[in-house]
Computed example of a mutant assay.
Amino acid sequence: MIFPVFNTKRTKEIFSFNPTVIPTREEASEIKIQVFDYNATEIHEKNYTKVEDCFPYVNNANVTWINIDGLRKADVEKICLQFNIHFLLGEDILSVGQRPKMDEMEGMMFCLLNMLYVNKAGAVETEQISMVLGKNFVISFQDDADRDVFDGLRNKLKANGSKLRQSGADYLCYSLLDMIVDHYFVVMENLSEQIELLEEDIIRAGNARSLARINNMRKELIVLKRNVLPVRELVNGFIRSDSDLLEERTIKYFKDVYDHIVQATDLVENYRDMMMSMQDLYLNKANMKLNEVMKVMAIVTCLLAPATVIGGIFGMNFDSIPSIHNKYGFFIAVGLMLFIPLWMVRIFRKRGWF
């Protein structure tokens, strides 16, 4: 995968967001709702297209995961009202370009972060996901109905005797966060492969295209850093929380996610340092190439200097120049023009100048 050589549009996408201006969200034409209602012995999977179908799961004795793909303001307000979710959290769910964060409000725990993907062009794409943890339920809100990172989690839910089925909603919330954070490493592994290919290309034949690709890669690392680093604070919020929604035995699992996000943060910083070193490598190689060109030109100038001097001397309009009337004078002059540069080449090579 390679980036476009001059991707100025990407720069605008990354840096044009203004938090003081309320962005407008384009409402989804349709929504998809997937519900997993389960306990240790049984599980029920349902698919709906109306939020009203989720209302019977309020105060359900089982653990319920409601995943809503596609956001519409009216639907979010309805489900927030039915599940007693504060309206400020509803505004965060509908927000665009929000910084990853975690909140506790009126007996609910809320977190917002981004799932990351790499598209065919090698650029990092983000999809905002919001999760609300309540008593015996987790509600997740996504923009894209065609992709997420939770397929492995769905398979675990369907497996009888899995730890997920034996645990409560807090463990489900941890599992969702863990899936998102683990997928960060998949994205970073993809970027790592691109960095290795770029480094090899610079060492072999660095040119202006290589410099443009370095700049494009640095932009993607900015996107990665912007979305990964705040998640560390988000997970730490769960660890420090005194909420009754979190069992003490579940905290150690959030600590494991915290360790993963710290590692991901370190990798992002390492990639950033690699890109800085790669840019220095490109500039140093360009300078070395320029030095080689100047070196060759200097040698050529030195080798031509004797011929220029001899030709200038014998080209002067004087009769008293030695050997000017000698019938072998021309051959002597040409011989000197060839011999002296060859002798100079031997001296230069002996001294290791080239």
Rank of each mutant, 00 (worst) to 15 (best):
N18S: 04
P23R: 07
T64C: 12
E91P: 01
K46P: 02
F36G: 01
E30I: 03
T64W: 11
A61V: 14
H44Y: 11
S95K: 08
R10A: 12
F17D: 04
R10F: 07
L81W: 01
F55H: 08
T20H: 10
R25C: 04
L81H: 08
I93C: 03
E26H: 10
T20I: 02
K9T: 07
Y57G: 00
L89F: 02
I33L: 04
L71G: 03
Y48N: 01
Q82T: 13
N84D: 15
E13S: 10
E91C: 02
T49W: 07
K9N: 09
E52G: 11
E30S: 14
E27W: 04
I22E: 13
S95F: 08
I33A: 03
T24E: 15
F36Q: 04
V21M: 09
N60R: 08
Q82Y: 11
I93H: 00
L88F: 11
D53W: 03
T41A: 13
K78W: 10
K50Q: 14
E45G: 06
S95Y: 09
T20L: 10
T64R: 15
K73F: 05
I31Y: 01
E26G: 08
F55R: 02
N18P: 05
Q34K: 15
D37I: 00
A40Q: 15
D69S: 12
A28C: 06
T8G: 02
R72S: 09
N59H: 14
V21I: 15
E13H: 10
G97K: 08
Y57R: 05
W65P: 03
T49I: 13
T41M: 10
E27I: 06
T41I: 10
T24I: 15
H86L: 03
A28R: 02
E26L: 08
I66L: 09
L94G: 04
R10N: 08
D92T: 07
T11D: 07
N39G: 03
N59I: 06
F55Q: 03
T64P: 06
T41Q: 15
D53C: 07
F55A: 04
F87S: 14
T24R: 14
F55L: 05
R72L: 04
H86Y: 12
V58G: 00
I85Y: 00
C54K: 03
N60M: 06
R10P: 01
I68S: 02
V58Y: 15
N67H: 14
L71M: 12
D37E: 09
A28W: 02
I33S: 02
F15P: 02
N39S: 08
K46I: 09
D92C: 06
E42Y: 01
V63Y: 12
K46A: 14
I22L: 12
C54A: 14
F87H: 13
E42S: 15
E13T: 06
N18V: 01
V76N: 01
P56E: 10
Y38S: 01
L81N: 07
H86C: 04
T24V: 15
E45W: 05
W65T: 05
F83G: 00
